[in-house]
Amino acid sequence: MKPSLPYKIVTYVVLTLWALIVIFPLWTLMVNSFKPKRDIFKDPFSLPTEVTVDGYLNAWTDSNFSFYFRNSFFITTVSLFLILFLGSIAAYSIAKWRSKIPGLFYIYFIAGLMIPLRLGTINLLQTIKAMGLLDTVFSLIPVYVAMGLPIAVFVLTDFIRALPDELFEAAKIDGANRFGIYLKIVIPLIRPALSTVAIFNLIPIWNDLWFPLIFIRTEDQRTLILGISLLFGQYQSNWTYILSALAISAVPVLVLYLAFAKQFIKGLTAGAVKG
């Protein structure tokens, strides 16, 4: 479809206005992360008069931060993979199993969207302790997977349900079994939905502070946000350090997002060809 010129103009005007509303705060973040902490409040929105990279150096050279990065990245990617895999295969079952049972499981799963898991912290701590996972990055993965499954099941079930039954029948005639159908038909077709679910879960997992606080003590098992939280003092904070660390911490999320967005677009165009 070729948009008309006025439509194009409106598009650019609205999106550019929004871009300004987004970029100004990001600008504030970036310029202040390069200022000595004393200058931040003097003029928070101007370019730094004296540039410092102390914050970035601190995050870079402080050996612990590289641990934190590695841990956060590991936890996030493994959790996301498991959420997508377990969630999509369960959603496939719920969407296409002709029986009364999956409907109940569906409600059972999405009930998890409605109650903060913080409430169950003490019981969760005991489970994790009994499994011997305490104080390791592995303690967080099952918790995040469990937290991510409700949204995965909720979104993916709807998408899989919308896939036409003829596709499945055709594949069956070709002799594919259910797992084969799942891999060869379901997964490629729901790629946009998978990316959406990944992005929905990416940020809460990456930025979670509560469970690392409870489960992790050892330095080399800490997550990035747990590390950053220790930069916030009781009555004083080194904002140069904090802003730099937070700016860096947004980079992996952005990279992961771009990767998912690519999949998302691929899935869209693939779907459009078929449609």
Partner: peptide, 28 residues
Amino acid sequence: AHLVWILFLIPALLVYSIFMAFPLFQSI
């Protein structure tokens, strides 16, 4: 046929029940 569908559900159900539903139920 039912068995396969159940097999697909079980891993998610296990993780979700142990690490979310059960602790929450205990707390409610």
